[in-house]
Computed example of a mutant assay.
Amino acid sequence: MTSACRGPQAKTTAMPVTTILGSPEGLCRLLQLLSTCVAFSLVASVNAYGGFSGDWCMFAWCFCFAVTFIIIVVELGGLQARFPLSWPNFPIIYAYYATLFCFSASIIYPTTYVQFLGHGRTRGHAIAATVFSCIACVAYATEVSLTRGKITGYMATVPGLLKVVETVVACIIFVFISDPYLYKYKPALEWCVAVYAICFILAAVAILLNLFDFTNALPIPLPSFLSGLALLSVLFYASAMVLWPLYQFHQRYGGIPERRRDSLCTISHVHYVCAWDRRLAVAILTAINLLAYVADLVYSAHPGFV
């Protein structure tokens, strides 16, 4: 971002509450605040978030509620100039993340948790929380559509959006591989985990450079830097796309080719997702992220995309 973008920011003063909260973006944020608050409150009131999948969904709702609240307070108080990040970019980047966080929670929570609950108050609260999670997802997506055309720079481009997708998918992968037994003592699978971590860090660095307006500090032009990151990530993820399924599902390499051969998958438990299902989820998410990185590389290589 140029210094011209910071000029108006330094003169920002507190605006009337009706001006901020009465705008379409303000109404979206109020709906986001309400829906995420209701979602995690319903789940917390009946303690229906045990296990890694429940913990991830609870984190997503609490995180989205907290950051949305901070954004509202900053704008109501006219504190944008004191905010440590580039304010023109921060709300839209956060809206990207919140959309994907709530979307993932709206899928993961009912499929890995709610369906195993018995009928009763706990299940009713969990279903209601899923509904409010979907409402939050729609509210955040609406904010993205309303504000995306109001910012400029890298995060307003398709590669900028893809960077957000790449980091969120990587976070979900980390959730599914949270138990080391899925990859421990197998160098090929440990390499895959390293790939997920390295590529996540690279994508996060690209986002943070833009958020903190540090792109001019790079020793090479920004497009070249981003294209290099995308190419490296494509090569890394391509290796993981081969090695993860091969060593997890091919019997010759110690994998389990069929779900029915995993005895733990026959047990339906609300707090547990069996190892075979986790391995399959990671394989699918790896393919999704590989496609995202390929698209990122194609767009980044296009002249003048920033």
Score class of each variant (00 low, 15 high):
247 Y>K: 06
193 V>F: 06
23 S>H: 10
228 G>I: 01
47 N>C: 08
296 D>Y: 00
250 H>P: 02
239 S>V: 06
215 T>F: 03
8 P>G: 11
105 A>F: 00
149 G>R: 09
98 A>S: 09
86 S>G: 04
284 I>W: 01
154 Y>V: 11
104 S>H: 11
265 C>F: 11
188 A>F: 12
234 V>A: 00
286 T>Y: 05
273 V>N: 08
139 A>T: 08
123 R>P: 14
57 C>H: 01
46 V>M: 07
191 W>P: 01
260 R>I: 07
67 V>P: 05
140 Y>I: 07
123 R>V: 03
136 A>M: 02
189 L>Q: 05
30 L>Y: 05
120 G>Y: 01
26 G>F: 01
107 I>C: 01
251 Q>R: 09
253 Y>W: 04
286 T>Q: 04
7 G>T: 15
304 G>H: 07
2 T>P: 07
228 G>E: 02
261 R>C: 01
275 A>M: 11
282 V>G: 06
305 F>Q: 04
73 V>L: 14
42 L>S: 08
229 L>W: 02
236 F>N: 09
274 C>I: 01
58 M>C: 12
219 P>E: 03
72 I>E: 08
168 V>Y: 06
10 A>M: 14
124 G>V: 03
138 V>G: 06
211 L>D: 03
147 T>I: 14
266 T>D: 14
234 V>R: 00
33 L>N: 03
45 S>H: 05
174 F>M: 10
245 P>F: 00
231 L>W: 00
162 L>I: 14
197 A>W: 04
34 L>F: 13
91 P>Y: 09
123 R>S: 13
258 E>N: 15
147 T>F: 08
93 I>H: 05
113 Y>Q: 07
226 L>P: 09
185 Y>C: 06
151 I>G: 04
293 Y>A: 14
254 G>N: 03
137 C>K: 12
234 V>G: 06
87 W>Q: 03
269 H>I: 07
60 A>C: 08
246 L>T: 11
79 L>Y: 15
6 R>M: 15
185 Y>H: 12
108 I>H: 02
259 R>V: 09
247 Y>S: 05
235 L>I: 10
148 R>T: 12
22 G>V: 11
269 H>N: 13
64 C>K: 00
256 I>F: 10
299 Y>N: 10
290 L>H: 02
34 L>S: 12
248 Q>I: 03
182 L>M: 10
163 K>M: 13
129 A>V: 07
30 L>S: 01
12 T>V: 15
85 L>N: 03
70 I>Q: 10
46 V>S: 05
101 F>Q: 02
217 A>T: 12
269 H>V: 04
219 P>R: 08
17 V>Y: 08
176 F>C: 08
15 M>N: 11
200 F>V: 00
117 L>K: 04
107 I>Q: 04
232 L>M: 11
276 W>A: 02
137 C>S: 12
176 F>N: 03
252 R>D: 15
213 D>C: 15
165 V>C: 15
286 T>G: 11
188 A>R: 08
65 F>D: 13
95 A>S: 13
253 Y>S: 13
269 H>A: 13
185 Y>N: 13
210 N>Q: 05
116 F>W: 08
48 A>P: 12
227 S>V: 14
257 P>S: 05
242 V>Q: 01
246 L>N: 05
206 A>V: 14
296 D>T: 08
